Amino acid sequence: MAKGEMMYKGKFKYIIFIITTSLFWFSLYAYVPIFPGYIEDLGVSHGMVGIIIGSYGFSQMIIRIPLGIISDRLNKRKLFILLGIISSFLSGLGLWLFSSALSMLFFRALAGIAAASWVAFSVLFSSYYRSDEATKATGYIMAANNFGQVLAMLAGGSAAEIFGARSSFLLAAAAAVLAFISGMLISENKEITRKPLSFAELASVGKSGNLIIVSVLAILSQFVVFATVYGFTPIVAESLGASSAQLGLLSTLSILPGIPAGALSGSYFSNKFGEKKTLFAGFIIAAFSCIAIPFAKSFSVLVITQVIGGFGKGVTLPLLMGLSIKNVEENKRGSAMGFFQAIYGLGMFTGPVAVGFISDIASLNAGFYFTAFICFIAAFTVKLFVKDLS
């Protein structure tokens, strides 16, 4: 009986963490499909739409490294997980209560602060596994992450369709409440022997030429994703007559292909074609999907462009993440990954901001063409500077 209870408690530890992770990401993404159009409908410029959307990446970029260092030094991850969930709750609730441009800027930035707690999630969950099972732990928690996002966008779009756009903010807050309840049951692991990161170490590993190139490519990759999928593609869909439920479907179908693409990029594609050709192809596919957006004259055609583009975009970031620590000394991998993850937040911010201002100055179509240009720059950067490391 005692053995059976131990097995149950062991399984419960993993299950409750997976549930908490899915609910957490659900709370951050429930309103994402309708958010750009919701902001635009309040009468603000595309430039302001971009700043509000980009604030999510900006706050992550600023907070992520300090949060990781503090949680390592205190050797407490559950505390920061719960604080992240509380931040997500306040973000959703604030967006539901207030609808001025400045309030949306503040509360979306607060969602970025919540997302920065992801480092605590990943470190704590990985500690439940042996060191040689790190990839298994990453696979499970990323699956929970993706499941939460996909379910959130489908549910959020449907809720907005039935109850109005603002209901998706309330749905996000409700998911955060559930995440907090399950998060209280998470098991802290006091035996983590992870050496705390330091700014000096990050600066040291940041001098690596390979890491700089890979990080720049990650910035460009996130630039494209946040300028299109989480930025201005939903506004194009609305102009084609898409409903809120269809916006949720569009966002879901934009990221779903990235799940198998990411899994295949670091294994099958890189083994068969090499990392260099795989990355190059991913950016080229993404470029043509951006070019195709202005030519989509129906919602169904727009969906096709995003499914294809989603596969291309899905190939790049997971492969770049792997390359950021490949051939890096074991004791410096944490620093390399910390540097990489902090840097690519710049793309999450600059993508929607740049396209927003280009849209105000020229047109939204010009913004998508510029995003395609960024993809081509990334592809030729790969061609010139990336070497296969297999």
Results as ranks from 00 to 15, higher is better:
S126L: 10
S127D: 04
R64P: 06
L154G: 10
G57L: 03
P36E: 02
R64Q: 08
L74I: 15
Y29L: 12
F80M: 03
I65S: 07
F147Q: 05
L42R: 12
A143W: 02
Y128Q: 04
A111I: 11
H46Y: 14
I39C: 02
I53L: 13
V44K: 08
D72Y: 10
L93W: 02
A137T: 07
F80V: 05
K76T: 11
N145D: 14
I113K: 01
Q149S: 12
Y129L: 01
G94P: 06
Y56D: 06
N146V: 14
K136H: 12
K136T: 10
V150M: 14
S55C: 06
F125S: 01
A134F: 13
A114G: 05
F80S: 01
S127H: 05
M153N: 03
R130G: 13
W96A: 07
Q149G: 15
F106I: 00
I62R: 01
I86V: 15
I52T: 01
S103T: 03
A144R: 02
M142Q: 13
A115K: 14
S103R: 00
I86G: 10
M48D: 04
K136R: 06
L124F: 02
G112F: 11
F58P: 09
M142P: 11
G68W: 13
V32L: 13
R73W: 03
L28T: 06
L110F: 00
W96G: 10
L23I: 06
G68M: 08
M142I: 13
R73F: 03
A111D: 01
M104R: 00
N145L: 12
S126F: 09
R77L: 08
V44W: 07
G37R: 06
I52P: 00
Q149R: 14
S87G: 09
I63E: 03
Y38I: 11
D72H: 07
G57P: 15
M61I: 13
L124S: 03
L97F: 11
S22C: 15
I69Y: 06
S99N: 15
S99F: 11
F107H: 00
A120E: 00
G148C: 15
A134G: 13
L93Q: 05
S59V: 14
L97A: 09
S91C: 12
F58H: 11
R73A: 01
M48H: 07
D132N: 03
N145P: 10
V32D: 12
I113C: 06
G43Y: 05
G139Y: 03
V49E: 08
L154Q: 14
A111Y: 05
A143Q: 05
S55L: 03
L90W: 08
A137C: 07
F98D: 00
I62A: 12
S88C: 13
W25R: 13
L105D: 00
M153Q: 04
H46I: 13
L95Y: 03
A143Y: 09
N146G: 15
L23M: 08
K76M: 11
D132I: 04
A114T: 09
W25D: 10
M142W: 10
Y38T: 10
A30S: 09
R108P: 03
G37Y: 05
S100L: 00
L74C: 14
L151W: 05
W25L: 11
H46V: 10
I85P: 08
F26G: 04
A155S: 12
A152H: 08
R108L: 11
L95E: 03
F147A: 04
